[in-house]
Design a protein around this nucleic acid. Structure first.
Lengths: 134, 134
DNA sequence: TTTGCTGCAAATCGTTTGCAACACC
DNA sequence: GGTGTTGCAAACGATTTGCAGCAAA
């Protein structure tokens, strides 16, 4: 959305609350469309535009965090302590990994290259246990 | 493109060669549009469609590797030994990092979760030396 | 009453695809 | 000559945006 407007007054609407409710669990990782489908039952008239605008705003105020999978899919999750993801190539199930791989060695390498690290992404792709048996 | 056709006979055309030439250096990381701009001078009539079709084909035969940045940008590079990227948030300059962070600890965690790892992504974002001074 | 928020529809961006002409082998 | 490849334009999916009406505060 590339909206760099300063955030002034934020109102609490039922649409926004319904979207936030969907992300109550930290293990919830959803695309805009998935959020739309989940919110639709309680907010039948909600539009995809509203979903996108809210996901963007909630991300900008820090309530949600956005990340992009290797296939380009954009997903959102509730903001929580630093972690990474384990993503099933088959069913898309996404789990949080507590550890972080940004180790001393790599930090050292970046320093050598005079690179100032701001953030990083790390996702593991493979098959979850139930998809392996199929 | 989601093209799962078996690859039969591949021909050498000047368009395809021009695209490959752009990726002669391993430190070249480009989007489809950037390739288009670079190839245009020698192939004035080339179309973006041809660029996309060739990037896809060259990726499927393993000559190129595709990766997606945290902002959703799709990039291509010449296939080479396993590595990761250092990406400047400001100018977009992308450098290869030789090390790999997929360490014992994380592999162990995946095993605990009965997750079969196939591949992973890891990119570091920040500011390169020249963008820091500006 | 003010102004942020919504639904709707149109617009945009990156990418894919159908097709007829073309050019490799 | 056969078929892989190309340029072109239309189609596509995900996301963004303009606008007028609505609703929180």
């Amino acid at each position: 959305m590339e909206n760099n407007q300063p955030i002034v007054g934020i109102r609490s609407t039922k649409q926004r609350q319904a979207i936030l409710d969907v992300f109550s669990d930290e293990q919830v990782h959803l695309s805009a469309d998935e959020v739309y489908l989940l919110v639709k039952p309680t907010q039948p008239n909600i539009s995809l535009g509203t979903i996108y605008r809210n996901l963007d705003l909630l991300t900008r105020i820090g309530a949600l965090t956005q990340f992009i999978l290797a296939d380009g899919t954009r997903k959102y999750e509730k903001t929580s302590s630093h972690h990474h993801h384990l993503v099933c190539i088959n069913c898309g199930e996404t789990k949080n990994i507590p550890g972080c791989p940004l180790d001393r060695e790599i930090k050292g390498y970046s320093k050598e290259n005079e690179f100032h690290i701001v953030r990083h992404s790390f996702e593991i792709y493979g098959y979850c246990s139930s998809c392996q048996t199929k």
